[in-house]
Structures are given as structure tokens and as C-alpha cells.
Design a protein around this nucleic acid. Structure first.
Ligand SMILES: [Mn+2]
Ligand SMILES: [Mn+2]
Ligand SMILES: [Mn+2]
Ligand SMILES: [Mn+2]
Lengths: 132, 132
DNA sequence: AGTCATTTTTAGCCTAGGCTAAAAATTATA
DNA sequence: TATAATTTTTAGCCTAGGCTAAAAATGACT
């Protein structure tokens, strides 16, 4: 919650970060499963066109979260890996928390995908604690 | 979670609905406090320019959530009021839930503003139950 | 009523995320 | 090694949410 402008503009910003977080998380996951990550993998994963992936990837690259030479595989930078780890951890805490609350797996998976981007550290700590 | 495309595109959609929900909620709130709602009130409330409010309001109007004649006050349609009630209720449940979890007022207020748009009915019910 | 101040709207610009269709490059196969 | 298939990139379009600056309308005050 850094230097507060209005509460709302911060949340609109969370929406912009959302795609970055989801992407680094997906890149890391696919990389672990398949060894390398191609444009097409992300297109399938997110259910959007490859053209869209290509464009979004450019934002990841200018944000120094990923690197990729034309027509080659996609890699996370150290910064990207760091964000991926944090995002995955956060995602998991929210998911486990919802499960503990009594939410069904399907819905917990679904809701955590959105909620994860809007949870402060304070709330996250309490969720983590609640789950154990 | 209606007809599922991909999980992700649904969440991107929630982000588009977010602004509609926040707006109808704000319009209702301001209307109750000040009697009528002007462009400028919303600009202050959301911390954006009046030009931005003007444009977003057009989306509310084409979405049949609000009405407004040029240079005059803003009103919610019945549909808008309905959405406002639902949004406010949802917002409140999430807020109270976070408080019950142990989150500080400030942070609960902040987090609930984002989370409210990503909580399914199933999760909402469990949150409501947890709070009492 | 006429002038001045305020508010609202418009115009034009930007980033971001989506799409389709076509071009370019790579990879596979004959 | 050509040719064909696949993948990636580019181009051009759209909606959405932000901005500033200027125009237009409304409201207040002599
Ligand atoms: Mn995630
Ligand atoms: Mn997510
Ligand atoms: Mn709200
Ligand atoms: Mn909100």
C-alpha cells in the first residue's frame, strides 16, 4: 500500500500488476513441467490469442521480468523469478485459506485466482495463520 | 462463474465490472448523503479527473445502470440500484469478515475494496457465516 | 441583463488488453 | 535440400480507463 494516492487508483493498479503476476507464475510453472516456455504454451494457458501473448510479453520484458529473443523460448529474469515465487506463495496461501474456510476446490481455485492480487501482507499473514 | 471461457478471461471481466460496481455504490452513497450526485462528487470520490468520470459515466449509462441529462445530476436506474445494493452488501460482508479475521480497520477497508469483486457466492456465504 | 466563476463536456492524447488476418521465420518432412 | 507445415510476429482494429487543455453551458452576483 505504498504512497497512497486514492484508494481506488491503487486498486486499478493492482489490476495492471495482476497480469504480470499471472504471467510470471505461468512461465515458471510451464518451465518446470515442459522444460521450456513458448508463446503458444502461454496462449493455451491463458486462453487468449498468440498475438495477445506476444504483446503482453513485451510489457513483461520492458518491466525486466522476462527475456526472449524473437522466435525463441521465454525466460524469467531474477526479478521475474522473485515475483513468481512471491505470487505463487501468495496464491497458495489464499487457496489453502479458502479451502480451510470450507470453500469447494473448484471455487477456491477460481476465487483465489482473483483474490490473490488484492490481499495485503497483513491479511495474508492472518490467512496463513488461520490455515494451520 | 457463468459459461466458463477460460478462468483468466473471467477474472479480466471482473476487473471491468469492478468499476461499474464501485460507481453505482458511490452514486448511491453520495445520493444518500448529499441528496444529489454531480460529476464533481464522483471525481473527488475516486480521485480522478472529471473528464474521466464523464467518460466512465457513459459506460454506466449504456449499461443501463444510470441516467443523466447533460449538465444535470446523476441517477441510478432500478437495475443500477439493484447492483448497488448487492455490491454494498458484498463489500460489507467482505469487510466484516476481514475484521473478524483480525485485520486492522484501515487495511480491511483497503483490501475489501479489491477483494469484493472477486468473491463467489459460495465464498461469500462462508464469509458471512464466519463473521457471526 | 450582463459579466464572471464554476462545472461539465469535448477533443485529443496515452497505456493496456483483447481480437483477426497476413507476413515472416522456424521446424519438419519428403 | 526444397517444400510444406507450424509457430511467431506484425499490422490494424476495438474497448476501456487514465490524462490535460480548451470549449460550452450553467449558476452567481452585481
Ligand atoms: Mn496466481
Ligand atoms: Mn491471478
Ligand atoms: Mn465497493
Ligand atoms: Mn471496489
Amino acid at each position: 500500500m505504498k504512497k497512497s494516492k486514492s484508494q481506488y487508483s491503487n486498486i486499478r493498479n493492482q489490476n495492471k500488476n495482476e497480469i504480470l503476476e499471472d504471467y510470471v507464475e505461468a512461465i515458471q510453472e510451464i518451465s518446470e513441467i515442459k522444460g521450456d516456455v513458448k508463446n503458444a504454451d502461454l496462449a493455451i494457458h491463458f486462453g487468449v490469442s498468440q498475438a495477445t501473448i506476444n504483446k503482453n510479453l513485451k510489457r513483461l520484458i520492458t518491466s525486466k521480468l522476462a527475456t526472449s529473443e524473437p522466435y525463441r523460448s521465454i525466460f524469467l529474469t531474477n526479478e521475474g523469478k522473485k515475483l513468481a515465487d512471491i505470487s505463487k506463495e501468495k496464491h497458495n496461501i489464499v487457496y489453502q485459506f479458502l479451502i480451510k474456510l470450507g470453500v469447494s476446490k473448484k471455487i477456491a481455485q477460481y476465487d483465489s485466482e482473483g483474490i490473490e492480487h488484492h490481499v495485503s501482507d497483513e491479511t495474508l499473514k492472518l490467512m496463513k495463520n488461520f490455515s494451520k
